[in-house]
Write a protein that binds this DNA or RNA. Structure first.
Lengths: 217, 217, 217, 217
DNA sequence: GATGAATGAGCTTTCATTCAT
DNA sequence: TATGAATGAAAGCTCATTCAT
């Protein structure tokens, strides 16, 4: 069940090679961009604004990104790829389906709490991509979705049933992604507790229903 | 437990009265605007584009909306108010907490299926509002959230416990709204069945956990 | 030396007769318009703004004025005509040239203090008129200028010299109009005293030079 | 009696440094803008019109001016500052109060004849500025006014009286500025002679009264 | 007379992007 | 690599004016 390699970024930016020496600077640029996009949306972020926030010239940005959309794509692709890689490793660890589900939930939430801006951009600005980069990003997303669905299927039908998805498991996975992604709209660690706690709550609700959430209070 | 009346729109635009005769036209404008915003986002929709789609002049739009943002606000406010009104009526009907929860789920999804564009705009363009209209829209949202949380609380702790919210019920409500709102990202009636079916699935999962979803297959 | 009648307004607005019954309303409109134009300039005043300030509909204004420029013209023409008529009467009164000069100065300043807004519009928005109304307004102005120049000539060269203008009298008249019209830029009755006092000061300075102004202190 | 330095422009636009290399270009832009504004007023001048007249793109203008109003402010501030600097130098030269007054009159008129457009903009478009730049421009104006008033005071009360302003000297200065500034409305070198001649005429009228103007004919 | 609705033309400003240096 | 200067395209919005009622 080893995953195929993810298509390289340069598929979409064949014109420019980013050498290791500038990797660190590139990361800084993307991080700042993520913060600005997360705050007001991709459209609202302007290249000028970004250049000012970075203390560099507007034209200078175009040494790192072929276009504003390329910037968005790089941001999304890298983030998604990192999330998927993490979750695939987590899913490979042995354990009951229930244990693995909890690990996926918590892993997702932890990734969220460490890369809030980046994940927010991935979650809400997918449609801002053009058709080609969209397809590339979509592909990773789909793999992540299948990963979740296969674990959910084992929870529902038992590990003996293999990882065959069913209508139930597919729908449930969509509900679960809704729960997970909606967290951007409300989560505040000071008010709601740690993401690990949230992960346990979700697990209880998913495994035992609403009444089961009383146990984890 | 009768709800206080919703603050009238004119709180924010006291200068303009929309008379009954133009109500119909206003509805048409808002409906088309909702479609365009839902498609590409509020920022991407241009007033010119809207005017063309409506077959009227650009300047003519400004007879109905003080600004582009005012348009967004009117759209959100009306839609939210209609949704809230519907759901409050539904919640008032007698029945066990479980029955009332299912009715709320289904009611939300039905509203979604009848006003997909409008609800999408409400769900994803809230942050495009300025501070003052944001607060007004937020207020309705909060009331809807409380309505859901009170029913969820009764499901968890039993009807005898009253509608007192707890940490569990509040968090669970947030998870539920995530499930409900995420539907914009994937739902296709042809592939996923009717919204009533989805509503039953969600109910089963919420009441009995993932394994409980097998029953409604 | 009786002055020829002033060309009737209808030369420029042949399309519409203003009947006596609406005369009063027309005056109100022009007065409000004068106030708004005086405040921010003709260009900055909008017909909407005016209609709002008057509590009437935008379209309604066009029953009284063929266009925005027509409004300006009517305002200027009426005001100038009234000023000229007053000053011609004043100049006809008997007296030494010096006395008649003082009367003209004071008359001008009194007219200013009674019709500040209107006169300001006449003084600073002449160029906002199109060529045809400009010429009509210019004509009255020129008559007023000649009236002043003839009196100034008598002051300089003695009443025996008749009213023949000279280079001196013409230039001096221009300087005097400068003094008079610049008053819009600074005059405040609370700080500078009555216009009659100002008139005496100007007379002293004009007749006796700067050192002569000490007498009227 | 050395004057304090004039507040630098950057007080209001600290973000943009105009380097010496672009100074020449900036001057060209402002000069053309002055011509267009002088012709039809600030409101009537459009940025498009200016860009066309300069043979550059509309957007390019915004490299030099943060906004249309900023353009007006820069124009006014620079012109006023230059006028004030010149007149302060002139006033410092030794001589009787009468000689110094004449030098100020002639200096003002010469500045006018060399920078007609710019000075016209300063004189008639002050109110087109917003409150903050207005205050800055007002400040320079006031200093110029005081300079004139102090010399006028010495003419009236003799040099021994120092430069203490009196009601007479203050008012007389306002009349003088009226005479000087009104020149925009009528002066034509071909018809009225050189500005130096006008300056002498004004001096004679101011020192000896209307009858004294015969001497300079 | 009066007005709500509508519009063509035009305004200031912003944006992503390019290019000579 | 880096940047100041420049620009085509387009955006939101306003204005004087018209016209059916």
């Amino acid at each position: 069940m080893s995953a195929p390699r993810i298509a390289p970024i340069d598929d979409i930016r064949p014109s420019r090679l980013v050498r290791p020496s500038s990797q660190k600077k590139l990361d800084r640029l993307l991080s700042k961009a993520a913060a600005l996009i997360a705050k007001n949306g991709f459209n609202a972020m302007t290249m000028r604004e970004l250049s000012t926030a970075l203390g560099m010239s507007l034209a200078g940005l175009y040494h790192y990104f072929a276009s504003k959309e390329d910037l968005l794509f790089q941001l999304q692709y890298r983030t998604f790829a990192a999330l998927l890689e993490q979750q695939e490793k987590i899913a490979e660890q042995p354990g009951t389906p229930e244990e693995r589900l909890e690990r996926l939930l918590t892993g997702h939430l932890q990734f969220y709490s460490r890369h809030t801006n980046e994940l927010k951009v991935c979650t809400f600005e997918l449609e801002s991509l053009g058709p080609k980069p969209y397809k590339l990003a979509e592909e990773i997303r789909r793999r992540y979705y299948r990963l979740m669905a296969s674990v959910v299927a084992q929870v529902i039908d038992g590990p003996a049933a293999g990882a065959r998805e069913t209508r139930q498991s597919r729908h449930a996975s969509l509900y679960i992604f809704g729960m997970l992604n909606w967290i951007f709209m409300w989560y505040d660690p000071a008010r709601h507790g740690s993401v690990e706690q949230i992960g346990r709550e979700m697990r209880d609700m998913l495994l035992h229903g609403l009444k089961g959430t009383k146990r984890s209070g």
